[in-house]
């Protein structure tokens, strides 16, 4: 089926700005679901609040657009209520790691079978460009005109440390890789985290003179590399992409661990 067939057409075109990366992630997620061959009725998408979270409404699955930061908690209830369903949680970086940070680490600790796709645009898009826990130190936001003082999280390290059994990172530029990683994440039984470096040209790009969507995606191309790549010897600042953790563990259930 074409991607369009998974969308609620009457609500499109979507609200995202020209060049925003979130639409690329939505498209990749749909391709992954198509690739796995899941029926629409088998998929639940639970999102929080943010530009990225608007994704839920456009998708022709069972969808829930909830509260800022709380999507993983709602998703936990859906998953435990219907363990046979595939539950995917599209999140913003602020949504997942600031207000929702506690739910994030606990979902990872439980290793509950959910797939969190975190659109890391390093900013709060929906509220107009304030800093997030993923905004690198020194970068500008509307609440940090002289540059952000707080250090950022390393999302991959955080997810690993908290216990997620699948952790991956990619970008909106690497669209084929994006689809493949989301596919693997959904197939994985356990808490899967896919960090997708996504662009917010409207706020993050503009405030930090990173250019439009195209320029920001070139940045993802030029400033990332595959895990273990030799390129990092010359340029240690390159951000690694790939699958960092992919472990088979017994499937979580609150009544105790069950064999798969």
């Amino acid at each position: 089926m074409p991607v369009k067939d998974y969308l609620r057409l009457r609500f499109l075109p979507h609200i995202w700005c020209p060049g925003c990366g979130h639409g690329i992630v939505m498209s990749g997620m749909i391709r992954a679901i198509e690739e796995i061959g899941l029926e629409k009725n088998e998929v639940v998408v639970v999102s929080g609040i943010g530009c990225s979270s608007r994704m839920a409404g456009y998708l022709d699955f069972h969808t829930m657009h909830t509260l800022h930061g709380r999507a993983l908690a709602f998703a936990t209830g859906v998953k435990l209520g219907r363990p046979d369903l595939t539950v995917i949680v599209p999140m913003g970086d602020g949504d997942a790691l600031a207000i929702g940070g506690n739910h994030f680490i606990h979902a990872a600790r439980r290793d509950i079978d959910l797939t969190a796709v975190i659109m890391n645009n390093r900013i709060y898009g929906m509220t107009g460009g304030q800093g997030s826990p993923m905004t690198p130190q020194g970068m500008r936001s509307t609440t940090a005109p002289r540059g952000i003082a707080d250090a950022a999280f390393d999302l991959v390290e955080l997810a690993k440390g908290a216990g997620a059994s699948f952790v991956a990172r990619t970008t909106t530029f690497h669209a084929t890789e994006l689809t493949r990683m989301i596919e693997k994440a959904i197939r994985h039984k356990g808490f899967s985290v896919v960090e997708v470096m996504s662009q917010c040209p409207t706020y993050y790009g503009r405030q930090n003179r990173l250019g439009n969507g195209v320029e920001m995606m070139k940045g993802f191309r030029d400033n990332t590399t595959s895990i273990g790549s030799k390129k990092r010897e010359a340029r240690p600042d390159l951000i690694e992409r790939g699958i960092f953790v992919d472990e088979d563990r017994p499937v979580y259930s609150p009544e105790g661990l069950k064999a798969d």
Partner: peptide, 9 residues
């Protein structure tokens, strides 16, 4: 939040 999610199932 969790019970609300479960209620919808």
């Amino acid at each position: 939040c969790t019970i609300i999610g479960a209620s919808l199932t």
